[in-house]
Design a protein around this nucleic acid. Sequence first.
DNA 1: GCCGTTTTCGGCCCGACTGTTTTCAGTCG
Length: 573
Amino acid sequence: MPVHNAEIADIFERLADLLELEDANPFRVRAYRNAARTIRGYPETMSRLVEKKADLAELPNIGEDLARKIATIVRTGKLPLLREIESRTPGQLSDLMKIQGLGPKRVKTLHKELHIRSVDDLGRAARSGKIRELPGFGEKTEKAILKGLEDIAGRANRTPLPQAEETARSLAAYLEAIEGVREVIVAGSFRRRKDTVGDLDFLVTASRKSPIMDEFIAYDEVRDVVSKGTGRSTVRLRSGMQVDLRVVPQVSQGAALLYFTGSKAHNIAIRKIAVSRGLKLNEYGLFKTDKRIAGKTEAQVYRRLGMAWVPPEMREDRGEIEEARKRSLPKLVEPDDIRGDLHCHTQATDGTLSIRKMARAAAEMGYEYLSINDHTRHVRVANGMDADRLLAQVEEIDRLNDELEDIVLLKSAEVDILKDGSLDLPDDVLGQLDFTVCAIHYGFDLSEKAQTERVLRAMDNPNFHVFAHPTARLINERPPCALDLERVMTAARENGCVMEVNAQPSRLDLNDEGCWLARESGVKVVISTDAHSAADLRYMRYGVDQARRGWLSPSDVLNTLSLAKLKKTLTRR
DNA sequence: GCCGTTTTCGGCCCGACTGTTTTCAGTCG
């Protein structure tokens, strides 16, 4: 079983935690964390890179030493250094650092003074009141630890973007109504459009006299106040979501927006650029000695650093800094570029509307085309169609196309990929469609080898056009199935197949990294909503977000094409 | 342990808030 990037990143992060507990050189600790971040977000697997004998030291934040360590982990699944350190420092101690308010120093004290080795030990010590007696600790810290233990026990998942959007909208409206508030912006991973959001970062410009902080913590949905200051406060909402609020002067708004949008890695990289130019960048502006030379807008700050403005979705330190310095950032796809939706369902299977009503809804979105992709027979729970029903639907679509004036319907289906890699309707039936969208709906737990071969075999069929929601993940519900995406991409390119970016907020599949891999592999994508109702067509935006995070341009996305060009491109040779 | 449009050695992002303290260490983002 090949080692996943996440496992390698976990090993390095654990190592960093334990080294920190041992008071190791903090920059060495940081090096391990930086490397972990690079590996976790890297679109290709380290296993594959090692197999290809690629030079891992070429990757950012990876040098000769870590390249060797990665290779060791790939080959053996473990790292001798970690074992060696764990023999000195109990491995579970790194778990304690996950509790809010506990860092390496305090964990070390707890271990040394009270012999605490695990989360359970910590709970017992806190409940018996032993922690408050330690030097540097007190009653409040002890209480905070008990609270922190509760939090990690019932830790909420990261919030899907649309839910976060709803929370953000209500809170923004509340904040905007507070006296003296000028502008409210949500920054953080929300602004970078990550598929899920951990917490919300609100940035507010307000007059000096505004009672913003008092009003903020008085918001109806606030469960507890984590901290409260004049410039920054943090609360936890009833939903479990954490919200940070920062008040900044208008003259610093751009610098603050830049800073609080992140990512952390992007911030660090641009601060280094500032330092290299003898400047200092913080959330209040860009400074030459003590003189602010930029800060009102983001564009101003980037400009004074010799860079183009970077779209928030790209701010992950995945090469955007270099491109911005060379002024060669790609032009990212935008919602307005989308000219049609290539995956939707009707009441023939599990959708809620007739074909005609879906067509009308799509026309109202301004689309030129919409394809109808009802399920095929294997998906019985969704009333999947057999050949006769599908062919009847094809005729119905032909009739509707004669009648409809403002939109063209494409004949398609969401065809099941069976376990043996065959498609669940005969070729002569599939051949009557304009194109197919093929997907896995069962057998998610096959081994990576079996799952990958299943897909590759399916792609050999000339009636396979689009691979829908490729990893079949459901955010916070079902992990992505084991699939060698790199091999799948290669096969897609060779066979002229296309990958779907499924825009359902619970799927977002391909995700940003998948989009990145598609582009690198020379594979085109379609962004589709998989709509089951008219309202679902509005999910398109979320798919575009992920495509932008994967640096996709309109030319990478086939449903930015006119109908004529699209039809030509979706044909396999 | 990484990295280089000043450098292959000597740097490494920066400020706010809290709690336990009487001036600051620890943690967080």
